[in-house]
Amino acid sequence: MHIAKWAVVLSIFWLLLSGFIEPLLLSFGAISVVIVLFILKRMDKVENEPGQIGTSIRLIRYTPWLIGQIFSSAIHVTKLIWGSPDKVSPAIEKINAKDVPASSRVLYANSITLTPGTLSVDLDESEVTVHALHKSSIEELQKGQMEKKITGIWGENK
């Protein structure tokens, strides 16, 4: 059943990104979706855990919050770039991620990367190495707001 969900999601995603509805391009899209589904099916056999699509309320709770974080970070980065160059203070630090469930650590690292001005460089068992344009972005991550949000929404017990 999850293969059918993935087929629908990938097809819609491909149509949204391509924007073309011509027979040749639709056939390319169908072929690419079939290839991805084939790879997904093979990965399911090896992993013994089928990749499920989050069809629950979790996605609805997480997406608007992440979009808000992206916009506020974009405003912060714009102020840094348009301001004086001495305001930019790049930093690289390890952020603790041991409280984030193992199944959500990649989501956590990607959420950090999606917010402008920060980039997840490395992901270990319990830490995410983050590069930021300004030290305050690292300090904000160390406060743990994003970690708490992801753990609260995507935690193991949900």
Rank of each mutant, 00 (worst) to 15 (best):
G29F: 05
A30T: 02
A30I: 02
I31A: 12
V33I: 06
V33Y: 06
V34A: 13
I35F: 14
I35S: 10
V36M: 11
L37Q: 08
L37F: 06
F38C: 04
F38G: 10
F38S: 11
I39V: 14
L40S: 05
L40F: 03
L40N: 07
L40M: 11
K41T: 08
K41I: 00
M43K: 14
D44E: 14
D44I: 02
D44W: 09
D44M: 06
K45C: 08
V46G: 04
V46C: 04
E47L: 12
N48E: 15
N48R: 15
N48Y: 13
E49T: 10
E49W: 06
E49H: 13
P50D: 03
G51M: 15
G51C: 11
G51D: 14
Q52C: 04
T55C: 05
T55F: 14
S56M: 12
S56W: 12
S56E: 14
I57L: 14
I57K: 15
R61D: 01
R61S: 02
Y62N: 06
Y62H: 06
T63N: 11
P64D: 00
L66V: 01
L66T: 02
L66M: 11
L66P: 04
I67Y: 08
G68Q: 09
G68E: 05
Q69D: 11
Q69S: 10
Q69K: 13
I70P: 01
F71T: 05
F71K: 00
S72L: 02
S72E: 09
S73T: 00
S73K: 07
A74F: 07
A74S: 15
I75N: 00
H76W: 10
H76K: 09
V77H: 10
V77S: 03
T78F: 13
K79E: 11
K79H: 09
K79L: 12
L80V: 04
L80C: 07
L80S: 01
I81L: 07
I81S: 04
W82K: 12
G83N: 07
P85D: 09
P85C: 04
P85G: 02
D86F: 12
D86A: 10
K87C: 03
S89N: 15
P90A: 03
P90V: 06
A91P: 07
I92C: 05
E93N: 15
E93F: 11
E93G: 08
E93S: 15
K94P: 01
I95A: 04
I95C: 04
N96P: 09
N96Q: 13
A97D: 07
A97K: 04
K98M: 09
K98H: 12
K98V: 09
K98C: 08
D99W: 07
D99Y: 06
D99N: 13
V100G: 08
A102S: 14
A102N: 13
S103M: 13
S103R: 14
S104P: 08
S104N: 07
R105K: 14
R105P: 03
V106M: 09
V106N: 09
L107I: 12
L107S: 11
Y108W: 10
Y108A: 08
A109R: 05
A109C: 01
A109Y: 04
N110T: 09
N110G: 00
I112E: 00
I112M: 02
I112A: 03
I112F: 01
T113F: 03
L114V: 06
L114W: 13
L114G: 00
L114M: 14
T115S: 03
T115C: 08
P116Q: 01
P116H: 02
G117I: 00
G117N: 06
